[in-house]
Nucleic acid binder design. Structure first.
Length: 420
RNA sequence: GGAGGGGUAGCGUAAUUGGUAACGCAGUGGUCUUGAAAACCACCGCCUUCGGGCUUGCAGGUUCGAGUCCUGUCCCCUCCGCCA
């Protein structure tokens, strides 16, 4: 959520920044609603002050045994006025709140202009795409041939966009998770294991709701939501809290993630790339506002180095305004080379949300020497998406005989096994 | 899922028949001190258009006035049931 004060004070700047995200918002409506709300609120508070006074006076008279009937009648009228004004304020308040919840975060100044992924700017590159002396196979073919991916039975027991990992596939996935968690822990992230089902308040806190309700799974009879990313439970750990511990706070968690992928029909229908359920190791960081941009660079390196340790070629792009997400102020996508696609494919997204989530979720801290609390900055990133990493491994490390080499760094997690 | 008990400031506790949230500890700043402790003073939830308003888990209701009464709901504890 954006600061209403900021919208009030510099509407043109906000408007210009949002235009960079190719979002058009009618800030004039906000301005009108805000003015009206402030005006009515003032009236209400003045009347309440009067009611508090006469109510106290009633109390005094009664204590002295005097008659207070006239005063009670008068106070009752004030109460009725307050009620009427409050009733008139309700729709204004609701409309303003509802609107503010749908306004995206403003991008930072360095975000490149642009409309789509084509306008993203390459920031870093590692490795070179492998050259094969034999026909390249896609990971779904490699996996099925090796008996480690079973899409057909997954369709039977669940449906489209689900996968069964079998034998070495399950083992490889678990190895990757452990490898990634250890990698994050070595870089100072505290490991957490969180619920996969969260309440609606958490979804509002990180910004999935109200705009993206249709993208998540709703467990109807109990009114829980399946997390679309561990960013949700991790960031909401400190919802409605004033963080007492010294910042930064760095967390990592492995969780399954669930996405409805509504409207995605036909895209990436084969393989592990786009699933309703996938595994991910996530990084979340709570940081002081002045340090959040430097923190973002660190987190980016924390994620990139996973791919470097696995020897997978990738490049990193800074997202242009039009390709950015709802709550992000600055986002880097890490894209891994996928031979079957013949291009780089997103495997991680690392972002600073500035104070956008913190304001929604009420996450504050007390700056050293300050009496007032301030909103923290929240950052998050994947390190990494496990299914996509597995796909990249199978494809980049495939051999002519259909088997797949296991990179050095992963072998200790596979009991020394060097190929599948 | 059922029955009972509970939720008040970071922690522990108060608040007559409904009368306008009190106290202790912890913490922060100050006085005093060579320094510290002790003592004393102030601060010690949120918003504010600086008038004031709000805050007893949350949302409503009754009332001139609700921590207190009523309804709904969330969470915690104990017991029973179920269960990995």
């Amino acid at each position: 959520m954006l600061d209403i004060k900021r919208i009030r004070q510099e509407p043109d700047t906000v408007k210009a920044l949002l235009a960079k995200k190719h979002v058009k918002v009618n800030l004039d409506t906000v301005k009108e609603l805000d003015q009206k709300r402030r005006q009515v609120t003032l009236q209400i508070e003045q009347l309440k002050a009067r009611r508090n006074q006469s109510s106290e006076a009633v109390s005094q008279r009664k204590k002295r045994g005097e008659d207070a009937e006239a005063l009670i009648v008068e106070t009752r009228q004030v109460g009725e006025e307050i009620k009427a004004l409050e009733t008139s304020l309700e729709p204004i308040d609701k409309e303003l709140q509802d609107f503010l919840l749908t306004v995206p975060n403003t991008p930072l100044p360095q975000v490149p202009a642009g409309e789509s992924a084509a306008d993203n700017v390459e920031a870093h590159k590692f490795g070179t795409p492998p050259v094969f002396s034999f026909p390249v196979q896609a990971h779904w073919d490699i996996g099925e041939a090796l008996g480690i991916l079973d899409f057909e039975r997954a369709r039977k027991i669940s449906g489209a966009r689900f996968t069964v990992l079998a034998d070495g596939g399950a083992r490889l996935s678990r190895a990757l998770i452990n490898f990634m968690l250890d990698h994050a822990r070595a870089r100072g992230y505290q490991e957490m294991a969180t619920p996969y089902l969260v309440n609606a308040a958490s979804m509002f806190g990180t910004g999935q709701f109200p705009k993206f309700v249709d993208d998540v799974f709703h467990v109807v009879p109990h009114d829980y939501y399946l997390i679309p990313t561990a960013e949700v439970p991790l960031t909401n750990l400190y919802r409605d809290e004033i963080i007492a511990a010294p910042l930064p706070l760095k967390f990592t968690a492995y969780t399954a993630s669930f996405r409805a992928e509504a409207g995605a029909a036909g895209r990436d229908t084969r393989g592990l790339i786009r699933q309703h359920q996938f595994d991910k190791v996530e990084l979340v960081r709570f940081e002081e506002p002045e340090k959040s941009e430097a923190a973002l660079q660190q987190m980016l390196r924390d994620a990139e180095s996973v791919l470097e340790d696995l020897g997978l070629p990738y490049h990193t792009v800074m997202l242009c305004g039009g390709d950015m997400g709802f709550g992000q102020a600055l986002t880097y996508d890490i894209e891994v080379w996928l031979p079957s696609y013949g291009k780089y494919v997103e495997i991680s997204s690392v972002s600073t949300m500035t104070d956008f989530q913190a304001r929604r979720a009420g996450i504050r801290y007390r700056p050293a020497g300050s009496k007032k609390t301030e909103l923290v900055h929240t950052l998050n990133g994947s390190a990494l998406a496990v299914g996509r990493t597995m796909a990249a491994l199978l494809e980049n490390y495939q051999m002519a005989n259909g088997h797949v080499q296991i990179p050095e760094a992963l072998r200790p997690y596979m009991g020394g096994l060097d190929q599948l």
